[in-house]
Design a protein around this nucleic acid. Sequence first.
DNA 1: TATGAATGAGTCTTCATTCAT
DNA 2: GATGAATGAAGACTCATTCAT
Lengths: 197, 197, 197, 197
Amino acid sequence: MENIADKKRAIFESTLVLIKEKGFHGTPMSQIAKNAGVAAGTIYHHFDSKETLILELYTYIRDKMLEAMLQLDNEAMDYKDRFFNFWISHCHFYVKNPNALFFMEQFVNSPYSNRDPLQENERFQNTFRDLIKAGVETGLLKPIDHLILSALIHGTIVNVAKMHLCQRVVIGEAELQQIVEVIWDGMHQQPNGAATS
Amino acid sequence: MENIADKKRAIFESTLVLIKEKGFHGTPMSQIAKNAGVAAGTIYHHFDSKETLILELYTYIRDKMLEAMLQLDNEAMDYKDRFFNFWISHCHFYVKNPNALFFMEQFVNSPYSNRDPLQENERFQNTFRDLIKAGVETGLLKPIDHLILSALIHGTIVNVAKMHLCQRVVIGEAELQQIVEVIWDGMHQQPNGAATS
Amino acid sequence: MENIADKKRAIFESTLVLIKEKGFHGTPMSQIAKNAGVAAGTIYHHFDSKETLILELYTYIRDKMLEAMLQLDNEAMDYKDRFFNFWISHCHFYVKNPNALFFMEQFVNSPYSNRDPLQENERFQNTFRDLIKAGVETGLLKPIDHLILSALIHGTIVNVAKMHLCQRVVIGEAELQQIVEVIWDGMHQQPNGAATS
Amino acid sequence: MENIADKKRAIFESTLVLIKEKGFHGTPMSQIAKNAGVAAGTIYHHFDSKETLILELYTYIRDKMLEAMLQLDNEAMDYKDRFFNFWISHCHFYVKNPNALFFMEQFVNSPYSNRDPLQENERFQNTFRDLIKAGVETGLLKPIDHLILSALIHGTIVNVAKMHLCQRVVIGEAELQQIVEVIWDGMHQQPNGAATS
DNA sequence: TATGAATGAGTCTTCATTCAT
DNA sequence: GATGAATGAAGACTCATTCAT
């Protein structure tokens, strides 16, 4: 039976919607249950506590995100294309899943994230990190600690997605392309090693 | 009286510390009061509710941040220097006020920020926006919607500051310089109008 | 089928163990089921409710206790020996079945026992009462209401067994003998009718 | 102000009544609060949790009991009189405070009592123990471990009080006197050292 | 009969807010 | 204004019981 997985998914999605609207605190388990179409007690057959639910929801989203991002990726592709792909598909994911974006942002800035074992998630981190590292090692990206480059990339993705979702600017495919160009131009290293001044 | 302002400040700082540690939900008014050295009821002489307190705290921090950022700014300076200054002093502010960073990040991603009239804050936004707009208009920055550029800049500042505070990379003045260079290189438009490819 | 009786017994024993450790309240039906090796719903094929289960468990234990106590009894024996036997075998039962002791003590002091029809149990009461009554009637015991004498006897048995189980004193066979001697000396009536002063 | 102590007392008494009627489990904090004339939350200003409340209630009762028992005691009195006094005033206390009796009996047989530090209560234990020890040392009582004698005494007190309260026998002052006589006769040692056989 | 996932009423507990002093 | 005890609504969580399989 797919039932169990289905029920968990229903609870995840219900939680996601409510947390986006009301925040962690503003989202009672009773309402999560109601919106998921189950009884309050049922949640506790699948998750030990509200905290566990949120922690697992985090992992669930990371997995979905990774899947979405790998769909277009291909190690045989040109580095720059892979770089662009990554940035854009990550951004797309957030734009298409705004609840996920707001959840993630609340999560990483909340005390929950400190308690997270962060191991499952490493699969996501690793994939991303390897791409950046490779760029630095092959000299395509400037010689800067890959963690810093990641921070820069991730920061831009999230903020651009948020700006889009807040409807403050229209950001179509053309704009996205233009934006990644900016990121790339900043991180890219000229073949002769001379970064633009 | 300075007393009132002092008491408000004490409440603000107490709130800031607790929210960084425990999050909005994990921070009861009673504890804010205790850490601020006042009685629980006293907070309600200064703030209508917990929500008001948090909303005002947001403004309080924006003001402090603006003040910090304007200290080194000077309209007579070279554009690139002003740009660098802005980025770096903003980042410095967060690094020196980690509680403020974590508060702001929780705030902007919470349902609180949706209710914020966003008017007070415009002072901050305006100052920043004008700089970016000027860059675009004078052709020093690529011709991209200034809101997008702001998003990119802000995203990088916040994420670099977080990475620094999480102690995952050592980020000294040299690294900061190097990082803004990346941002600048990405946004800067070559005099001849040809952006790097 | 022996199966049904076996299953009931398994449920009884599981309940007994858990109630000793956790008390009535701390013992969920689900755990009783798990420790008994059956499903939660199965219990309800054998008992109408948790209350019924506990009420029947009470009877189950009374029966086991009576059986244990009658094993050494024999109407042909000397009265004093029967008296000693009763006291000691009752105490032995509790010492060998500490779970039963703790269950009974919780039970008789709980609101459950008020609802108990107390009929089944009379078999136990009767056997015991008859012995005491006979003692009074034959003048071997002091002329005191047999219910009072029973209370005295039962109170000493239970408390001595508890003291033993709490490991606060070592109580071997010699001590037991000495203790019943005390009880007997107190209740026994001198042939000449003069009770000790 | 006596207010705080008064409020605690009101909560204690409310708890006592309800626990006698409904048991630990059947007594919700909300009802304790209502019967005590306070709000549910108020209880938590005085007690950390339901468990703490019950633990403190235990101590509260021990104290009241000790006080009642010492009222008639006097070291200058004849040993036998003190012994009788102790037994009877203890029994009286239970008869006059049936709620206390049922609470104590539930308590000592529940998992709560295992967590009790049992230190405060030692005052009670010590007073009682000293009396018994003195009896053994002076040869007035049979040479049996004082813990065993205590168990016998306490067991009889509690069970006689219960029998009285269950209305199964009328136990007046004359009967009480007669009963302690039984206990005394059992434990007392003949001057010539020959216990009755 | 046996199962065990699902139910939802009921519990303990927290905490924003009030108000008499 | 300041205090902090009191309030009680609301939330997380438990568990006896049911019922479709």
